[in-house]
């Protein structure tokens, strides 16, 4: 009596491709101003790992149970594509997080090191001046002018924003 083998669709490699593609595309979320970008980092990673799991599952099923699943070639190709997509996500993840430890940076309660740097017009500006403790640096945009008396009031605080630079 002939054995009837139930054929099943090997959907795992396709799911792997989909998850991998979504993981890569999720990086677009970093280019818009949206909340929850911190969560997006881990979501992308989780999707990539899931993609890898399904890619392996698809290949294992195709090769271990060829009569049931079939698709040795297609699962291998899709698995490879999914692998590349995951590699992209992985590189982006580790690259974006490869940052120096900065253990020596001033901590809350410590004094901020003074500096004198050129502003975009080439004028020298010091931290003391920005804090209003030394004359000068009032002519930059953003002067705290007292509305009633019209006198310039020094700021309560300065927000130093260190950034990577123009790119």
């Amino acid at each position: 009596m002939a054995e009837i083998i139930e054929r099943r669709r090997n959907w795992a490699p396709w799911l792997a491709l989909l998850l991998g593609a979504v993981a890569v595309l999720s990086n677009a979320g970093f280019f818009v101003s949206m909340p929850g970008q911190g969560a997006l980092v881990w979501l992308g990673l989780a999707l990539a790992i899931a993609a890898l799991v399904y890619a392996v599952l698809g290949v294992v099923r195709a090769f271990r149970q060829p009569q049931v699943y079939g698709g040795k070639v297609s699962s291998s190709i899709l698995g490879l594509v999914a692998l590349f997509l995951c590699a992209f996500v992985g590189f982006a993840f580790f690259g974006a997080r490869a940052l120096p430890a900065s253990a020596g940076a001033p901590k809350v309660g410590q004094k901020a090191p003074d500096f004198t740097l050129a502003d975009s017009n080439g004028a020298q500006v010091s931290l003391e001046q920005l804090l209003g403790k030394a004359p000068g640096a009032q002519a930059t945009v953003f002067t705290n002018t007292n509305v009633t008396s019209g006198t310039v009031v020094p700021p309560k605080a300065v927000l130093l924003v260190f950034y990577r630079g123009y790119w």
Partner: peptide, 14 residues
């Protein structure tokens, strides 16, 4: 520079 922000008050304290 790595990105970082510091709020420094008028006494120069972080």
């Amino acid at each position: 520079s790595r990105p970082a922000e510091f709020l420094v008050d008028s006494s120069g304290t972080v």
